[in-house]
């Protein structure tokens, strides 16, 4: 297992999650004010899931080296 690669991927994923967290909070507030439809929140969740899937696959590579 490549520990440094796994650590680097975890750091990237954490940074991305924090950025998405801020954006999700902004989107939730807009939704609460009635400016943003639920579709916007739903697509944002799918986007986040897609990014997490990419990082999960990359994390898998750390076990292959």
């Amino acid at each position: 297992m490549n520990t440094s690669a796994l650590a680097a991927i975890a750091v990237f994923a954490a940074a991305l999650l924090s950025v998405f967290g801020v954006l999700y909070r902004m989107a939730s507030r807009s939704h609460a004010r009635g400016e943003l439809s639920y579709d916007g929140i739903r697509i944002l969740r799918w986007a986040l899931l897609g990014q997490l899937a990419i990082f999960a696959i990359l994390a898998l590579t750390a076990f292959l080296t």
């Binding site: 990237f12 940074a15 991305l16 950025v19 998405f20 801020v22 954006l23 902004m26 989107a27 807009s30 009635g34 400016e35 943003l36 439809s37 579709d39 916007g40 697509i43 944002l44 986007a47």
Partner: peptide
């Protein structure tokens, strides 16, 4: 890329998803 480009893209998308 991950700190500016991607968040900007999400903000554009969220703005486009608004009623106005």
């Amino acid at each position: 890329g991950f700190g500016v480009f991607l968040p900007n893209g999400v903000r554009i998308f969220l703005e486009l998803a608004k009623a106005k």
